[in-house]
């Protein structure tokens, strides 16, 4: 059994969001980078748990990015996983990235591919679906629970107002969110072991992006809060009804 876990490098959740080059580029000045939380906390940890239950499972990590993504992938390897592949390319759009991952997946022959439900920077939630289509595999998105039984997976996924349980045969692509696993902190042994785990850089295949970023915008600032006395809660309700017109 081989599992491929997709890892993305994203700005830290507290990073200041600003743009340069006439609002066409994200300003990376002073930005700390992290593993996309959905990739780290849910898909990677779930893959590690599966391997802990069945030592014959092999976990590969994949990222699409330049050499500056290496520290992020090492950090992921410190949590777990056997080896990592970095497709040496600047990311263009989701389709470009998904095509690179699909290529890696074709070479590696994986039974299971995990992604996070979205990245916290571009919020596309598209990589999993695109990879699944390019590989002609079933896709279960927004998983909140994942169990493996032989060559069959039982996945609980989010639906509007609840959850549903489904069964799918492998090979399969799954996007993971909260519920699938619990966040882990890498330990010293993991960090030491990660240093010597194989991290292979491969060149990208030639693919045309389908979209481009024209520019970025920041949302307008809020006007400021209107404070109401705790002894006058009726006034708040009146304002919500008559001024804001939201109830």
């Amino acid at each position: 059994m081989k599992i491929l876990v997709c890892i993305s490098k994203t700005p830290d959740t507290t990073a200041k969001i600003a743009f340069t080059a006439n609002n066409t580029k994200f300003d990376t000045n002073g930005v700390q980078w992290i593993i996309n939380p959905y990739d780290e906390w849910y898909s990677l940890v779930r893959a590690i748990e599966l391997k802990e239950a069945d030592a014959s499972i092999v976990i590969h990590l994949v990222t699409v990015g330049a050499a500056d993504a290496d520290p992020i992938i090492r950090k992921a390897l410190a949590l777990g996983g056997d080896e990592a592949i970095r497709v040496n390319a600047d990311s263009h759009d989701s389709f470009y990235i998904a095509s690179q991952i699909a290529e890696v997946a074709k070479q590696g022959g994986y039974d299971l591919i995990f992604t996070g439900k979205e990245t916290i920077d571009y919020n596309g939630s598209s990589i999993g679906g695109m990879v699944a289509e390019l590989l002609d595999m079933p896709y279960v998105s927004l998983a909140t629970k994942f169990e493996l039984g032989g060559t069959k997976a039982t996945v609980t996924r989010e639906i509007e107002g609840g959850e549903e349980v489904c069964e799918v045969n492998l090979p399969l692509v799954v996007s993971c969110q909260k519920g699938v696993a619990e966040q882990r902190i890498p330990n010293m042994r993991g960090i030491m072991a990660a240093r010597t785990k194989p991290l292979k850089a491969v060149e990208p295949t030639s693919v045309d992006a389908l979209t481009g970023i024209a520019n970025f915008e920041l949302p307008p600032a809020k006007a400021g809060v209107k404070l109401i006395s705790p002894d006058n809660v009726e006034e708040l309700v009146r304002l919500l009804k008559e001024e804001a017109k939201v109830i």
């Binding site: 939630s125 598209s126 990589i127 679906g129 695109m130 289509e133 896709y139 927004l142 389908l210």
Partner: peptide, 21 residues
């Protein structure tokens, strides 16, 4: 939920640019 699952697949199938969100 359905859109997040299907729109990216369709984008890859038709090579149609996708804006999600």
């Amino acid at each position: 939920v359905d859109g997040k699952s299907v729109a990216p697949r369709l984008s890859a199938k038709l090579k149609a640019g996708l804006v999600s969100g």
